[in-house]
Nucleic acid binder design. Structure first.
Lengths: 217, 217
DNA sequence: TACATTTGTGACAGCATTGTCATAAACGCA
DNA sequence: TGCGTTTATGACAATGCTGTCACAAATGTA
């Protein structure tokens, strides 16, 4: 989707363009996010943006793909077979998620935003697709694990998946409240929400996993 | 906040003004919600709105207060002392919540929107306050009930409250996915999301309560 | 150096928004 | 009916946004 021109840009310039754009789309909805603010922040001209991308949606789609790819690279290193129980595996996924957040706070915030706070009509269809994929992923996990007794078969699959997704995605918010971390302030400083709280996060994940497994076993 | 003029309006006109405004603010963020669309839908002039309210924020604040008051009237009829266990009480609260949604789909959607999807800077501070109150309410419940063994004392209060709030507020989304209800479509028809699904909702609440109590006991 | 290609620029049109205000219409009452 | 008060109107200024395009600057190449 980005033009050849954008891809040929010096890495430094391309990278700062991405970071500033991620920040803008993390702090605003698609509709209220402003190309004007991006170019002002970067000190480049309006025309450049439209030489890199066809339009605002093109830019947004590129950022989405970029952030998803970056996250995947972090998380896909965790393999089920390396863990005895599903819940050990699950815990590790969320620790790796924290690593990702530490390394890429803007990507992380952007993904969180589009998954749970973005409601603009123009981009809704792309997000629905994302949610369906996440649901499918959890569904496969649970179905696979049900054979070895990690999950109570009396509870409907729909409910189990819903329960897990809901709790999983609430981790960020928990930290925000629990440690009174000002998420947006952290983003503005290009700093991860978890930077000062990685051990507290680890503890919270333990507690969550314990509660989840108790509820669903 | 609304002017005398607005309060003196014939009930029918005032009511339709509220409904159309609720719809607009339910389908859009504060920033993208458009007074132009509201007046077009109502067939009134631009000046009228600004004779009723000082500005867009004034209108939004009135709608918020109106919706909260309407919800309170529905839910406050449930009393803890009428139920043997906390979970029976809790279940009834959510059934009453469904009643509220049935009777006031637009209020319901609006409240859901501002509590979990509204991220515009101009109104964020008013919403934060709302979230703090909800948290406080749950906290009092849990502390009160911990003395009679409904909640495991090993789990931190923070985590219990977070768990309950998260799951509770996910009910609407669960229905959306589980029954493939198009929420926005329902709202557009002035119809509650639960109208055709009240028994399914009741079942979902039962399942949720069962899972929650198992996890937290 | 001289020419070709690529990249950067910012004024501009077109559109949508909010809040204002002078004026018109409707209403209430004597 | 006639007059004073209340309510409704919509043109308007001010602002901000996106996407375009003719032109300028920079870079690569021969």
């Amino acid at each position: 989707m980005p033009s050849k021109t954008f891809l040929n840009l010096p890495k430094e310039k391309r990278e700062s363009f991405i970071q500033v754009s991620l920040k803008e789309f993390s702090e605003n909805n698609f509709e209220t996010a402003s190309v004007n603010r991006i170019i002002k922040e970067l000190g480049i001209s309006r025309g450049s943006v439209y030489q890199y991308f066809t339009d605002k949606l093109g830019l947004w789609l590129y950022l989405k793909e970029h952030a998803e790819k970056t996250k995947m690279e972090n998380v896909q290193s965790v393999n089920r077979e390396d863990f005895d129980t599903f819940w050990d595996y699950y815990r590790e996924l969320y620790i790796k998620g924290a690593d990702f957040d530490l390394l890429n706070p803007l990507c992380s915030k952007f993904l969180y935003k589009i998954a749970y706070q973005e409601s603009s009509k123009e981009v809704r269809k792309y997000i629905n697709n994302w949610k369906i994929q996440a649901d499918q992923q959890f569904r496969e996990w649970v179905q696979y694990e049900q054979s070895n007794g990690s999950f109570n078969s009396d509870i409907s699959l729909d409910m189990i998946v819903h329960f897990m997704i809901t709790i999983s995605t609430s981790l960020v918010e928990l930290l925000q409240n629990k440690f009174l971390v000002d998420f947006d302030q952290h983003i503005k400083n290009d700093k991860s929400i978890l930077a000062d709280n990685i051990s507290a996060y680890s503890k919270a994940v333990d507690e969550i996993v314990s509660l989840l497994s108790k509820a669903l076993k």
